Simulated scan of single mutants.
Amino acid sequence: MTERTLILVKPDGVQRALSGEILSRVEAKGYRLVAVELLHASREVLSRHYAEHEGKPFYEPLVEFMESGPTLAIVAEGERVIEGFRSLAGATDPTTAAPGTIRGDLGRHWPTAVIQNLVHGSDSPESAAREIAIWFPELSA
């Protein structure tokens, strides 16, 4: 089943010049890049993206981190791309992420207010549709 997902290379990944490496891994996996844009996310976009976390203790530090620099926003397409990219990304905590994954190979724990783990990937078809509409409204049907 062909599907689409939103992938974000977060400000830590962009700042560390890992965007090309991450894009290369996505393409090497056989996924097609539908849209790619380097942007500085606004608070409005981030508050919509992270709406489910509003009111939680990590919400404000997370939004501040995501506002701290450019983000590479990507829409990728392919068979089971949501599940596939999440597997490629690895566990949320870079310290425990398996070798061979983006977070396992390229990430590490930093003493920051929120985990800086390089990438985000949609967790379900519903989340992917919602997130793509936020970051790439022109792709919403």
Rank of each mutant, 00 (worst) to 15 (best):
E54F: 11
S42F: 03
F65D: 03
S87R: 11
I74N: 09
F58K: 14
A128Q: 10
A76Y: 05
E77G: 12
E126F: 03
E67T: 14
P57M: 00
T5F: 01
S68L: 07
V9M: 01
E79F: 15
E21N: 05
W110Y: 14
K29P: 13
A97R: 05
K56T: 06
A98G: 09
H120S: 01
R16F: 07
P57G: 02
A129E: 13
F65R: 13
T96L: 08
A133M: 06
A17G: 11
E54A: 12
G84N: 06
L23M: 15
L38S: 13
P61M: 01
V45M: 13
S19N: 07
Y31I: 02
A89N: 14
R43F: 03
A17W: 12
S47G: 01
I134N: 09
I74H: 13
R48G: 05
E131W: 02
E79K: 15
G20K: 14
L88K: 12
T95G: 13
G13A: 03
A97T: 12
A28R: 15
E44C: 07
A128P: 15
Y50N: 10
R32P: 12
R86I: 04
R16T: 02
A97D: 06
P70D: 06
V34M: 12
K29T: 01
A129D: 09
L72F: 00
M1D: 08
L106A: 06
P11R: 00
P94I: 00
I102G: 10
A91W: 07
E126K: 07
I134E: 05
R86Q: 12
L8W: 05
P70E: 05
L139Y: 12
E52V: 07
Q116R: 12
G55V: 05
P70R: 00
L33Y: 10
S42I: 08
G13W: 00
I82Y: 04
Y59C: 05
E83C: 08
S47A: 04
S87N: 14
E138N: 08
A17L: 08
K56E: 08
S19E: 05
T95E: 11
D105T: 04
K56H: 07
A141V: 05
A73H: 06
V14L: 01
S24N: 15
